[in-house]
Design a protein around this nucleic acid. Structure first.
Lengths: 198, 198
DNA sequence: GTCAAATAATGACTTAGGTCATTTTGGTGG
DNA sequence: CCACCAAAATGACCTAAGTCATTATTTGAC
């Protein structure tokens, strides 16, 4: 099937040139026409491969999220907290290497999550990865909780989103915040001696 | 100052007509030209008041967030958890009344938070409101925690964001999820009998 | 009231994303 | 090798956001 091969080649060609241009000029300053010219194809062809200009970012983010499986598999030592943190650390190290591209990609990822209500896309992949890690932990008796793993994963994803959305993008700061907030939810807010009053 | 008054009137005129059109046809299907025609002004005038079409959504979300102060003040009974939940319930009841408008507005709110790294905008207002509530609680000894209130507020905002981003938009489901996740972070993930192993 | 400076309104114009009818190309059967 | 069909490429075209030089309005000073 020559056709299939060509399609794959063209898609990769578009991705390659697009990423290069995004790195040079920033996502917002690159037009679809520029990308296609760089590829030596017609503008319309771009839209045979990506419905919207932004979809190229989702596709990119997707390809990085594929790495999650490897990250999760490779990393099965330490406490649950450490394992979760490790996943985030690995994600960030990818993120920060290409921050000029992945920052707009993050925006698109969230937009897409909102539109699908988190039912699909990268954020749900992240949630699933965390679920998997926690489940492994429960099986190995390294983690026990009165809550379902899916519910714990939800809270952890929330922490991740909030930190990414609301923290200046410096790797160390992000990791510190994440580590602390994980610590907080692991042990809970309430100080032992507290008595809630009505 | 006639000039000031006119500006205010024009801005309100634009908002009023824009909201009405958004309700009728949905944000995406309303053009700036339509809005200005409805207002009886020139298209260019719109951009004297809002830098981009989307900014009208931010302004709208902003005006709703102003209500936070009232909500927080009016509601100083119950446990901290209940008070926080109450804030969310009030926000949602506003949100759901105008969901077709506020959904795109929420997207813009997040985008803007990402760009300012959470330093300004509606999400930081929400965080501050929660901080305020928790601080009140600490003063009244209704809430004690080994964590700083700002850190607790961060986690709570994370829960809020994740739930709004990733849950199908039904008021009851959202509130249930929020209530549960607040419960979780209040008490912590870990079951007493758990021992973390290395 | 008149004039000049500051501010606001205007709409023709530019730009870029996205569409689609048409053309070209790859694949298949005779 | 040709004929034919399905799928992919094409680029003229359309639409809508956003710009900006020009025009109109408000204001304050005299």
């Amino acid at each position: 099937m020559l056709r299939e091969a060509n399609k794959k080649k063209t898609k990769e060609l578009i991705m390659k040139n697009a990423i290069q241009l995004f790195k040079q000029k920033g996502y917002q300053n690159v037009t679809v026409a520029e990308i296609t010219t760089a590829c030596g194809i017609a503008k319309g062809t771009f839209f045979n491969y990506f419905q919207k200009k932004e979809h190229i970012l989702l596709y990119l983010a997707d390809s990085y999220m594929e790495l999650l499986h490897k990250i999760v598999q490779r990393n099965q030592v330490g406490t649950m907290k450490e394992q979760v943190l490790h996943i985030f650390r690995e994600l960030f190290s990818i993120y920060f290497k290409q921050i000029d591209i992945l920052h707009p990609a993050f925006e698109e990822t969230i937009k897409s999550a909102i539109r699908s209500n988190g039912a699909s896309g990268n954020i749900s992949k992240l949630r699933e990865a965390i679920c998997y890690v926690l489940e492994q932990g429960m099986e190995k008796k390294a983690f026990r909780s009165k809550w379902k793993v899916a519910e714990c994963a939800d809270v952890i994803v929330g922490i991740f989103l909030n930190v990414l959305i609301c923290t200046p993008l410096e790797e160390e700061k992000l990791m510190k915040k994440l580590a602390q907030q994980l610590e907080m939810v692991w042990g809970g807010f309430i100080h032992e001696s507290t008595k809630e009053i009505s």
